[in-house]
Design a protein around this nucleic acid. Structure first.
Length: 450
RNA sequence: GCUGGGUUGGCGGAGUAGUCAAUCGCACCAGACUGUAGAUCUGGCGCCCGGAAGGGCUACGGGAGUGCGAAUCUCUCACCCAGCA
């Protein structure tokens, strides 16, 4: 156990409200999280391309890891033996772990339908969707060893009469999900109980209940069915959480003390107001923390969903918006009462060569980002964002970053990721300050002019 | 000088009479990405018209032939490489 480690159940407090936007603090054994806060994603116990030292320097207060990935590799027992996640990845600040529920979707339905969390791609026309969809699957298959392809679970999940049945890597039962590992093809099972047990061994401060994710293409009936399953799984997650806490730490310092993990229940219900409100009430009445999950039809629907959900929640519970988002999503969600976010966009887009920029360079039309790999930046001596104070912008030109990407140098990914994560952290810091000073609406207008 | 091999799109490199405007890789251009099977994926890439389907033009070192038809066969010129002098 860390020197000075003070086990405590995380708590949350709203400090200041500016209309529905809130500035608060989540206290955990590994330190405080001042909200609103952006949580970078470090799925496999690493924020891709960054060292923990760099992450500390950039300044996010929490990092998110994934139960599914760490369970497959290297396994929670290895991590626990090495002192838990914090010690394993040399990160002594707060950490959140996702339950692996999302992978039920992304390794299953996600293979069959485009638009993982949003339906927007379907608006472009049927033919495009069909071809794109097929190519996604071809791509996945190519990347899988042939032994795995030949042994794929043949569970079919047709979503409409027009859809070709496709193989998927998992099978959903009442008990949980039977997976085929995307790494070696071995058969695995994840249940609410095992997800919680794994998350307990990993040792993140904030953990998430095991849920089933609906597709954005689901009908009301399909969504309701999925929500009902999620609710049953969430209650089992909660029970497991209350049961396992203590057991996992038998013989250790924590025995007999209060649980030091905060379990978030996840709300679902797709695009449907009735289901969303029911789900929010359900989670609110059972959990001390709420994560908004599930699929959304589009941005407008996402904001509606946040509104509907938040209406049904107690003020004193922290609200996390899973997997969102873009700059405008963050403003709109904070405006409606969200406290924390995690999203792969800054890290993933960074690796793809897209870098963020605030006003005036960045705006709602260019989605606050541009492609640094374009030839027009070959000899551009300006920094990525002239207004940015990050280490990358203080020391490197667009030309240099452009060169690194074009020559496929590894540093490219590090510099772009560094800057992008800094951008998100800086953005949420500005948002928090604006709330504390009752200037949130003003800041929001400067950024997205709504 | 002799002998052998070679000369294909921005580059590398397939093709060796029709299904070739020409496989493929690189480079380049464009697009995608929201609880990460992602340092990834998709599309374009001679010129012109078209949204597309498709159509027209110019092309496989230069020139001349054979043949219904040539990047592919013959002759010749130029250049490159290897071995021998």
């Amino acid at each position: 156990m860390d020197q000075g480690f003070n086990p405590m159940k995380p708590s949350f407090k709203v400090l200041v409200k500016d209309k529905n936007a809130r500035a608060g603090v989540i206290k955990t054994s590994h330190g405080d999280i001042e909200t609103p806060a952006f949580i970078p994603v470090g799925t496999k116990a690493t924020v891709k391309s960054l060292t923990s030292e760099q992450i500390r320097e950039i300044g996010p207060q929490v990092v998110l890891v994934n139960t599914y990935h760490l369970h497959l590799q290297p396994g929670e027992d290895v991590i626990k033996k090495l002192g838990g996640l914090h010690s394993f990845m040399n990160w002594d600040k707060p950490m959140m772990s996702d339950s692996g529920g999302f992978q039920v979707f992304s390794l299953g339905i996600g293979l069959e339908k485009p638009g993982v969390k949003f339906l927007k791609d379907l608006d472009d026309g049927r033919s495009k969707v069909e071809s794109r969809n097929l190519k996604i699957e071809d791509r996945k298959l190519i990347h899988r060893p042939s032994s795995i392809i030949n042994n794929l679970s043949s569970t079919i999940y047709p979503l409409s009469s027009n859809d070709e049945p496709r193989p998927r890597l998992n099978k959903i039962t009442e008990e949980g999900v039977e997976f085929q590992s995307h790494i070696d093809g071995s058969r695995r099972k994840l249940t609410p109980e095992s997800s919680i047990a794994i998350q307990e061994k990993l040792g993140a401060d904030l953990i998430i209940a095991f849920d089933d994710l609906e597709s954005p293409t689901y009908s009301y009936e399909q969504t309701k069915k999925s929500l009902d399953l999620t609710n049953r799984w969430e209650l089992r997650s909660l029970k497991a959480h209350l049961t396992f806490q203590g057991e996992a730490f038998q013989g250790e310092a924590l025995r007999g003390k209060r649980p030091n993990q905060l379990l978030y229940g996840v709300t679902h219900g797709g695009e449907f107001e009735e289901l969303r409100r029911k789900s929010a009430k359900f989670v609110n009445s059972n959990f001390d923390a709420v994560a908004l999950g599930g699929a959304h039809k589009n941005k407008k629907n996402l904001y509606e969903v946040v509104e509907w959900t938040v209406c049904e929640l107690d003020e004193d519970k922290p609200r996390h918006l899973l997997g969102v988002g873009e700059v405008d999503d963050i403003f709109e969600s904070v405006a409606r009462g969200i406290d924390t976010f995690d999203c792969v966009i800054p890290t993933r887009l960074g690796r793809m060569g897209h870098v963020f920029a605030g006003p005036p360079l960045g705006n709602i039309r260019n989605r606050f980002r541009y492609d640094i790999t374009k030839s027009k930046f070959v000899s551009d001596e300006k920094s990525i964002d002239p207004k940015c104070q990050c280490w990358v912008c203080q020391n490197f030109s667009r030309a240099y970053v452009n060169h690194l990407f074009r020559s496929r140098e590894l540093l490219a990914y590090t510099l772009a990721t560094y800057h992008n994560v800094y951008f998100m952290v800086n953005l949420t810091n500005q948002i928090r300050d604006s709330i504390l000073n009752s200037q949130f609406e003003k800041l929001k207008k400067v950024w997205i002019k709504s």
